[in-house]
Design a protein around this nucleic acid. Structure first.
Lengths: 223, 223
DNA sequence: TTAAAATGATAGTATTACTATTGTAAATAA
DNA sequence: TTATTTACAATAGTAATACTATCATTTTAA
């Protein structure tokens, strides 16, 4: 059985829904490849236009600017993560087991996901590690937050927080711990690749280092 | 007694040492004010030049580009933090007390610091929360890391890691925990201000929320 | 089949991120 | 003292970025 994954993305993020046309899908798909390759700062609509044999004007009909395009990609990712989480914990009763699955999801490659996705999940994964915080670390955060563009992130956070509370009802900081797990998983994976001295990889030489670190951290906090 | 704080900053970061002239100091000082006001993306050398009644060309003689200028500011900050840490734990013997001081430093306003600083520590604090990760979240990270421009961050991390190990010699992840404390303190403070639903501020209404969260987290992990 | 929508092609603007050159004042060295 | 660096301002200029606007053509939907 094969199935396609589609999410309804907040229409404040785009000018024209990229899901509504082949060109739109190509824009997002190619953007993921290019942002992965160039990094967000070096990525431009001009370069993207050349890549898809089109013009800047065409891309501007879909997205107001490259920040919105990144936001679109991350909304898709957050939806995807929440879906994966629901899917993977289905029928599991042990709440500790559920938390372990969360950490696995946060620290492992997305490509071992389920279903068919339109996008390169490996690239998407790298973009999340290196670029995701740039969507909220901007002066316009208050402004854009009003149109609920961070809702999928908050939902994901709330869902994880709920599972934390299921496991330890008395724990006072389920949401903060939830965002800490998410952000720390990105940080540690990025540092592991780029600034390893900010981690303990030299003494703990394990391929799944981040997973080990976060599991240890989470259950020391909750148990 | 008043004293001035100066740090030797890696000379790979600048073309000409801003500490070497009044104009140089003015550039850095004004840059901090402007980045605080505009955010890093909207900040340009042109705007900075206008602000100091000079020209872009002059600023380019000191810094290759605005990324390097931000890196300079953060190097100064990391040095400042390491100094503050040494200063504040001097003569304290209880290692748990030392860890508490670290968290206090990471979660409180820098303005309650010591000594005279050339820069607005309140603005500097906000810049660290919102912009610091942008210095390493760049495609050039491997390249610039070669010239040791992140050494003060690594040193700060190592120092905190050491104190963690003093307290719990058997803990396996002192460095990763150290960076997690630093990064999480930024995240949580930023979220508190801008995306509070990613935190537990609604249920834990305390002015020193981040401090409480991190203390709870740290000692649950280590005890 | 016709009207509307989407796209491509082209042009243009303000700003950004630089580089280069020159003149002059101030600091310093011979 | 004079000569010479140096520091900086002023000016000019360039390529790229981040857009906006117009219009002709193609595609799609009624």
């Amino acid at each position: 059985m094969e199935f396609q994954l589609k999410f309804d993305i907040n229409d404040k993020i785009f000018l024209r829904n990229p899901e509504s046309s082949e060109l739109g899908k190509l824009i997002v798909k190619t953007a993921i490849n290019l942002i992965y390759e160039l990094g967000f700062e070096q990525f431009t609509f001009k370069k993207l236009a050349v890549e898809i044999n089109s013009t800047e004007a065409t891309i501007y009909r879909y997205f107001e600017n490259k920040h919105r395009l990144l936001l679109y990609i991350l909304n898709w990712y957050w939806n995807f993560m929440e879906f994966l989480l629901s899917y993977k914990i289905e029928n599991i009763n042990d709440s500790k087991e559920k938390l372990k699955i969360i950490i696995q999801l946060l620290t492992q490659d997305l490509s071992i996901g389920i279903g068919q996705t339109d996008y390169n999940t490996n690239y998407l994964n790298q973009i999340v590690l290196a670029e995701s915080s740039k969507v909220y670390l901007t002066k316009e955060v208050a402004e854009i937050n009003k149109s609920e563009v961070f809702k999928p992130y908050k939902d994901l956070c709330a869902k994880i927080a709920e599972l934390i509370s299921d496991y330890k009802p008395n724990y006072k900081f389920p949401r903060s711990l939830s965002t800490t797990l998410i952000e720390t998983s990105h940080n540690q994976q990025y540092f592991l690749q780029n600034l390893p001295r900010l981690t303990d990889i030299q003494s703990v030489k394990k391929p799944n280092f981040t997973q080990l670190f976060l599991e240890d951290l989470l259950f020391k906090i909750l148990d």
